[in-house]
Design a protein around this nucleic acid. Structure first.
Length: 549
RNA sequence: GCGCCUGUAGCUCAGUAGGAUAGAGCAACUGCCUUCUAAGCAGUAGGUCACUGGUUCGAAUCCAGUCAGGCGCACCA
């Protein structure tokens, strides 16, 4: 539809050019806005104001010339010039018909697009170390990564969701040693727990579990403590994520990078390209050559490789897997790593615009308006599981997606749980449930939602509120596209809150099921379209659309 | 000191490929349930878009600087 309008405008400008009103050859890209106000039409464009300086004519004069020609188009109801030179286009009612027909026809697929053109995109997210349970910060990253993946798929990309498991290096060793101490403690030994060990209660659970399964640390057939510990944690993380509604396509083990020699191979490649040097007994990657603040160590003087060394091997592998775009979702405290990863990509001879990093800002949990204390000292923090159990999966995911990722989030636990209208997740879900309830009620009265739409039915939807709802429904596809391009899932959340805010007042003012079969049919159809789009949007967020509440 | 992010109504935030009178929710105040779900609706009030300059016909949006807050600057992971 939008493309059609652009063509009408182009034709109009072409006409104006033939008539000598416009002389310049160059035509700026035509941008169509969905105006904020109904009185500004279905679409609006600022093209006349962009042409004005080139043509050296008053914008309103140019606009007038173009608008007159647009008005002549058969699908245009009228076309005005407004303000400093906006061209406001009002389409004939058949335009509304098209939107509703499209929703009926496409159903759960309404809003899909092909802007991704099947390009392969990898989204790597969560990737929490298997040394402790997921906390709320991970949860936010999980919600954003999963919703973004859904949105990208809907917009025609081929998406692969990946979790990078940090199962190598010192932290898993420390985890193993932490478990060892707790086992000794359970065996009655007095222990002294070092500062940098993992102190959480979950370590005691793992220790007890180990004893139950194997009896003693050196029992025959017993796995190493670090393997047992990290496997236990990983299983717990997986089950948390599953209950949060998230499944990954690929779990990528850091350790596998060593096993397959990829770390060594990557260092070799950098070496052959002359980006590696030795100094003070360590092996360095000269990242400063590619915009980093300082050079980075790959292999320490003690012979151990750094975390960064496996990270470069991992990112090299990602690129070699042929993704046209790789997306990393990181906690905001990791932004210092961005430049060194970009340095790697450039050093390997690639364009680093292939990499997109989304930083997830902090989550502050509030209860009774007061921040919930995070007792970091004791290694205890609020887990994703706790929040999910308290407020439910749907509210949890929705709340994580109510803010831009790079803005800090205040998560009000009381609000998320409340069944009051001020709770946005209920407000949106209720929109869907309410419509389903209306449809059920209508069915009892012998009315069904029509499967086809026509101009006659459309003519019964003659209220301002109905036009606003249809306009909003019609913009869903574009919102999804923008959300995909900008990689900003929260746009969908806001879209849904806006849609619900249009529907509830409409419901309150108008009765859907009446004695008038035609009016009832028309309104049922509109309501069902709202429910369809609400369900589609919630689906992208990973939030359920209940039939009843 | 250097780098990244943030600064919009009392509170929490949308709005940045420059556009029309800057929006929403909450909180506050006034109202609405014999009617398809009141988990809802109607109304009132609330602003130097941190500040200062610049670019532009036009700036919350772009540029420069200032101020304030957060985070990051390891041979840690």
């Amino acid at each position: 539809m939008k493309a059609g309008v652009v063509k009408i405008i182009k034709d109009a400008i072409g006409g104006a050019r033939l008539d000598g009103v416009i002389n310049g050859e160059k035509l700026p890209e035509i941008v169509l806005d969905k105006p904020k106000k109904e009185e500004f039409g279905d679409f609006s464009t600022n093209i006349a104001m962009l042409l004005a300086p080139v043509e050296k004519k008053a914008p309103r004069d140019i606009a007038k010339a173009i608008a007159d020609r647009i008005s002549a188009s058969p699908s245009v109801e009228k076309c005005d010039v407004a303000g400093p030179g906006f061209i406001n286009i009002f389409l004939k009612k058949t335009y509304w018909l098209g939107i509703l027909e499209d929703i009926i026809k496409s159903g759960a697929g309404y809003g899909q697009s092909e802007i991704g053109r099947g390009q392969k995109v990898q989204v790597e997210f969560v990737s929490a170390n298997p040394t402790g349970p997921l906390h709320v910060g991970h949860g936010r990253g999980a919600a954003v990564g999963d919703a973004l993946s859904n949105i990208l798929k809907f917009a025609g990309y081929q998406v692969s969701k990946e979790y990078y498991i940090n199962d190598a290096g010192r932290q898993v060793l420390t985890l193993g040693e932490s478990v060892r101490l707790r086992i000794e403690e359970l065996n009655g030994k007095a222990i002294e727990f070092p500062q940098d060990f993992y102190k959480g209660e979950y370590i005691k659970d793992i220790a007890a579990d180990y004893i139950e399964k194997y009896g003693a640390i050196d029992a025959p057939g017993a796995p190493s403590l670090k393997d047992f510990g990290s496997q236990s944690m990983l299983e717990r993380i997986k089950s948390d994520l599953l209950d949060f509604g998230i499944e990954f396509d690929n779990w990528f083990s850091e350790r596998s990078l060593d096993d397959t020699g990829m770390v060594a191979a990557t260092i070799e490649e950098l070496k052959s390209k002359g980006h590696v040097f030795e100094s003070e007994g360590a092996l360095w990657f000269r990242t400063t050559e590619f915009g980093d603040d300082k050079d980075r160590v790959l292999i320490k003087a003690d012979g151990e490789r750094t975390y960064f060394a496996s990270d470069i091997a991992y990112h090299r592998d990602k690129i070699e897997r042929g993704f046209s775009s790789i997306v990393n979702i990181w906690g905001a405290d990791h932004h210092g790593y961005e430049n060194r990863i970009r340095a790697l990509i450039k050093a390997l001879g690639h364009d680093d615009s292939i990499l997109k990093i989304i930083f997830i800002q902090l989550v502050a949990l509030l209860r009774g308006g007061v921040p919930v204390a995070m007792g970091k000292r004791e290694g205890e923090f609020v887990t994703l599981r706790q929040v999910m159990d308290e407020v439910g999966k749907d509210a949890c995911r929705f709340f994580f997606l109510m803010r831009r990722s790079d803005a800090q989030l205040d998560f009000d636990l009381d609000l998320a749980k409340s069944q009051a209208p001020e709770n946005p997740v209920y407000y949106v879900q209720y929109c869907h449930a309410r419509i389903k309830s209306i449809i059920a009620f209508a069915a009892e009265k012998g009315f069904v939602v029509p499967e086809h739409f026509d101009a006659k039915l459309l003519s019964r939807l003659d209220q301002k509120e109905e036009a606003e709802i249809i306009r909003h429904l019609g913009s869903f596809g574009e919102v999804v596209e923008r959300s995909a391009e900008a990689m900003e899932p929260h746009r969908i959340t806001f879209y849904l809150m806006d849609l619900a805010a249009l529907f509830h007042p409409y419901y309150n003012k108008n009765r859907v099921v009446t004695d008038d079969p035609e009016l009832t049919a028309a309104r049922l159809l509109l309501c069902n379209a709202v429910a369809t789009v609400t369900a589609n949007g919630l689906g992208l967020l990973g939030v359920s659309a209940p039939e009843k509440m």
